[in-house]
């Protein structure tokens, strides 16, 4: 369990994180979302004990991050921003160093290294210096390093940055597999990633917690939530007809695309009735769950909070 209380970090006169409090329980995959410079990485650096907070405290599985830093660090795996590793070492040497540093007993060191080599498919580059690897491989070496000691808490700063779509998918699967009994915190600015792997989202902007919700709850804040979108030729005409329905709160047209906003939860059936009544040629029809990017923009630009 992670308990953060009024975390604050100042760099000179600049306040990177202001008064951040939250707790995270095992089984939660928490996504830190926010624009660049919002304080995501700084928060992660405090949670992993790299930076001491200017004020406030954080406890990891009961260990204070300042007073009992080493014990706290032992429960955590951390992928720092940019996945740094020692470039002159080969992947194998690097992972063996991590195994030793993570205090894995000599007898189980090889199997621990092999396990994470397997999980992140690093076998082919085992004997290459890290410096010569592509960005995607480096990120995977960073991930391997973080999960090596099977920590109850994983903190991953932009784990899929620089990976291709297949690799992203694999990393997300990996996170899914580990999620059940761990605490996983990831930071990202890829919105679909949050929807794909997280069951809790915190949006941070200007060093402040703006929203703490589930991805579904976040999406439901969108004005598109439960709206109906369609593509048809006579969008303008359809808009004026639909606007008169009692189930419709409003309609927006852009080109051939028409979006109607709900006044009641019967919207979809009302719209589909109208379509068959008027015999419109509809090329596409969908019920919107809500638009993540729109909610994100609203929140981080201070529209809603």
């Amino acid at each position: 369990m992670i308990e953060a209380q009024s975390l604050r970090k100042d760099f000179g006169s600049f306040t990177a994180v202001k008064d951040l409090s939250f707790t995270v329980e095992p089984g939660q995959v928490l996504g830190f979302l926010g624009p660049n410079g919002a304080g995501k990485s700084t928060t992660m650096k405090m949670l992993t004990g790299f930076l001491a907070p200017t004020s406030g405290t954080a406890r990891v599985n009961g260990h204070d991050l300042v007073d009992d830093s080493l014990a706290a660090r032992r429960c955590m795996g951390y992928l720092p921003e940019g996945a740094p590793s020692y470039g002159e070492m080969t992947v194998l040497q690097f992972l063996q160093f991590i195994a030793r540093a993570r205090e894995i007993l000599p007898a189980s060191r090889d199997s621990a290294v092999n396990d994470c080599v397997e999980k992140l498919q690093l076998k082919g580059v085992l004997h290459q210096p890290v410096d010569t690897l592509s960005k995607g491989f480096r990120r995977r070496v960073g991930l391997a390093q973080a999960i090596m000691h099977d920590p109850p808490i994983l903190i991953l700063d932009e784990p899929t940055d620089g990976l291709d779509p297949n690799q992203k998918h694999e990393v997300r699967q990996l996170i899914d597999q580990m999620a059940s009994d761990k605490i996983i915190i990831i930071s990202t600015h890829i919105l679909e990633e949050v929807e794909a792997v997280c069951n809790r989202v915190m949006i941070i902007a200007d060093g402040e917690l703006k929203v703490d919700d589930s991805p579904q709850g976040l999406v439901a804040r969108s004005r598109y939530h439960n709206a109906v979108s369609m593509v048809l030729d006579e969008a303008q005409k359809a808009a004026s007809v639909l606007s008169d329905l009692p189930e419709v709160a409003g309609a927006e047209v852009s080109g051939r695309e028409l979006t109607v906003f709900p006044a009641s939860d019967q919207l979809f059936s009302a719209v589909s009735n109208a379509i068959s009544q008027h015999d419109w040629k509809v090329h596409e029809l969908k019920l919107e769950a809500g638009r993540f990017d729109e909610v994100f923009r609203e929140i981080t630009r201070g529209g809603m909070s």
Partner: peptide, 13 residues
């Protein structure tokens, strides 16, 4: 290279 962050978040004082 940023490895300081890696090194000092390992259980090494």
């Amino acid at each position: 290279s940023g490895t300081i962050e890696l090194l000092l978040t390992l259980p090494i004082s």
